[in-house]
Every structure is written in structure tokens, then in C-alpha cells.
């Protein structure tokens, strides 16, 4: 049990706020949709592989949207693909998060001016939680993006809004 070993007395009970418990569980197992689009997908793969090891943050690629918590939009979104991404997003169960990786997904990147078939920013189709700049972003940048997303999840609340 590592750090927690022999730290508890007989009660075997932990008391925590519901928000804290749920947020902790959610942020430490952000399962991403195993889905690459373009150049950034290679950097995303490099992030999951030996050197950078995405797994240590609980990010595991799942191949179906039904089991995924987050999509990393890794690359240029074309008009043809945007409709399919929207469909994938709709198939995911709540809560769901989007990381927009790279300039192309953020705003069209180098293709913003003459790209007749490029969607200028994935946020025109689905809502985005974290934008990671770069063309392509280094794996460290993607990790930073993930940490930002975790911070965002940490501050969420399940409480009913009273106004």
C-alpha cells in the first residue's frame, strides 16, 4: 500500500467531502479516446510511450467513445472530419472533457488563411476545456495541458446550484 501502509487505525473509514472524493477519482483516471488526427497524434503517441509515460497520470487510451472521459483533439480538423468528431463527442458519457492539442485544433494553425477544407478551431463544433499551443506541442506541453485539466476537475462541484 505504499504511503498509506499502517497509517489507519481500526476504524477502516475515511471521511471526505463528496466533491473531493469524486473529483479525486475523476481526475486521476482520465481515460482518453484513442484517436489521432494528424501530426500531433504522433506527439500524443510519443507522450503515451516510454519516455513520457502518460499512464502515470491515469491516462489510458480507450478505443470506444463509450468508455472515454476525454478526447485529445490532436491535429487539424477538416470539415469532413468535424462532423464525425461531433458524433464521437455526443457518444461519450458525461462528464466529458476536451483537450485541444496544437495550433490547428485551436484556431486552424498554419492553415487559417487558405485552408478551404480546414475547420478554423474545434471550438466551433464542440466545447473545449484546455487549449495546448504549439505546432506540434512538445510532450511536456501536453502533460502540462493534462495537469491544467486535472486542476479544472479538482475545482468542480456536484452541489445543486441554488440561486
Amino acid at each position: 500500500m505504499g504511503l498509506l501502509d499502517k497509517e489507519f487505525s481500526d476504524g477502516n473509514i475515511v471521511i471526505a467531502k463528496v466533491d473531493d472524493l469524486f473529483n479525486w477519482a475523476r481526475l486521476s483516471s482520465v481515460w482518453q479516446l484513442g484517436f489521432g488526427l494528424a501530426c500531433c497524434a504522433i506527439e500524443m503517441m510519443a507522450t503515451s510511450m516510454s519516455h513520457y509515460d502518460f499512464d502515470r497520470f491515469g491516462v489510458i487510451p480507450r478505443n470506444t467513445p463509450r468508455q472515454a472521459d476525454a478526447i485529445i483533439i490532436s491535429g487539424t480538423v477538416t470539415l469532413k472530419m468535424a462532423l464525425r468528431i461531433k458524433r464521437l463527442y455526443e457518444q461519450m458519457p458525461d462528464p466529458k472533457y476536451i483537450i485541444s492539442m496544437g495550433s490547428c485544433a485551436n484556431c486552424g494553425g498554419p492553415y487559417w488563411e487558405h485552408g478551404y477544407h480546414v475547420l478554423k478551431g474545434i471550438d466551433r463544433v464542440i466545447p473545449v476545456d484546455v487549449y495546448v499551443p504549439g505546432c506540434p506541442p512538445r510532450p511536456e506541453a501536453l502533460l502540462e495541458g493534462l495537469l491544467k485539466l486535472q486542476e479544472k476537475i479538482r475545482n468542480e462541484s456536484l452541489r445543486k446550484k441554488s440561486a
Partner: peptide
């Protein structure tokens, strides 16, 4: 094809 057609030739 065409899901990643990024208009290279136009650029």
C-alpha cells in the same frame, strides 16, 4: 479519403 485534406496545393 479526405478526412485530413489540408489544402497543401492551394497553400
Amino acid at each position: 479519403l479526405g478526412y485530413l485534406h489540408r489544402c497543401f496545393e492551394k497553400h
